[in-house]
Design a protein around this nucleic acid. Sequence first.
RNA 1: GGCAGGGUGGCUCAGUGGUACGGCGGAGGACUGCAAAUCCUUUAUUCGCGAGUUCGAUUCUCGCCCCUGCCUCCA
Length: 455
Amino acid sequence: MSLVVYNSLSRQKEPFVPLQAGHVGMYVCGVTVYDLCHVGHARSTIVFDIVYRWLQQSGYVVNYVRNFTDVDDKIIRRANESGISTSQLTESMIQAFHEDMDALACLRPLHEPRATLHMQGMITMIGQLVDKGMAYVSRTGDVLYSVRKFEGYGQLSGKRIEELESGSRIEVDESKEDPLDFVLWKMAKPGEPAWDSPWGQGRPGWHIECSAMSCSHLGETFDIHGGGMDLKFPHHENEIAQARAANGGGFARYWLHNGFVNINEEKMSKSLGNFFTIREVLKSCHPEVLRMFVLSTHYRSPLDFSDQALDVARVGLDRLYEIKQRIDAVEHVDVELPLAFVKAMNDDFNTPEALAAVYELGRNINKAMDAACPVDDMVAAFRAMCSLLGILQSSADAWFRPVDLDAARIEGLIVERNAARKSRDFARADEVRDLLAAEGIILEDGANGTTWKKE
RNA sequence: GGCAGGGUGGCUCAGUGGUACGGCGGAGGACUGCAAAUCCUUUAUUCGCGAGUUCGAUUCUCGCCCCUGCCUCCA
């Protein structure tokens, strides 16, 4: 049984066979660091975190690279508005990114290259494109890519050059030889961040950084390139055009794109203003809830964000944490992942299906424990699956019993109630339980005494 | 208009050429002093609509309707 992935390039699922046996090179487009990340960014990061984890689980040594775009018009504008330098802005946003994604249990990539630290690579690639006649210097001094000269342009996004042109409603930049051409190197205006280049002081265009940085870390041809659906065109299309033209051949072999997060069936985006930042959401919900929410839908499908959807994710986790609470004392043994789970993950990272396997095993654990049967193997598998998905990583205690509650008082009341129960004073016992229930505290009378949790 | 991806029970979310996974919710039951948690049973003659291929289609083909996204910066 082996991994099958949906390759946007071929628009179908393909067996995943890395270039070099046992090794995977994976590049994922990160974020432009001019603002805080929203739930859409969280989805993308979580999705590729799962890909990363699963590849490693499958025995691959993964060179995972994710960039930060830290030079860009929006960054310059935002920094100016805030009266800080662009590097101050990008530094603080990179830090915020790490805080948010760490909270969501996303593993850090092996490399997180920044555009501003890879100028030479980009300049070299642009030089190659100019030398090969694939790029030219415009009247305004910008270096532009000649899209028409690249055979196969549009393969990834399924667009034809003729259609692009006729459908183009944006104002045409007069300095371009062709409206389709895009900027490789942009001349700096006074006061803008700038780097020296053979074409004068300026900064790179958006697309070139990913071509240059991916190739520099992973080689000219590598296995996986990922990102949000919206990057397919033009960004990824342009990356392909640049890299293949410069390298004279290959580039990423498998293209993976995650679907959007929607609100009211509309894409969450900055421009629509209908976004929630991750930290905003995490104020009122546990990070694992957000992660669970993301994993509950296949990564290529649209994902509707709402309080209700988060609630569903939370309730699901409650169920799993109930199990975790029961199995805390069970010893750790080594065990293979259940077949159903492996099959699901191998089928283009089908996390909803994988979660179904988790629930099913959970039910079997409950059943076995109810019957006082051995559960070591099941528990080990359960733990392994959850850990791989990056859920159930808190203790059940922390999950159900927030530290801001006065545990001593609650437990005192429980003692009092149990005394009442023992003397069959159920009126008093229920009174205590109702008192706590009013505070959102649920009591559970189990075989081993009474436990409580916040609901 | 072009391209891409969708329309599955009250909600959500998988999936398959042989009448549909899981979660939430609902109903009934076991357990409990009563609950909670847990377990069991049950909850879609049916997978947008129509036609075709087939012994058989929700799954394949064609047409239609509807939704979303991309075509401009965007995870």
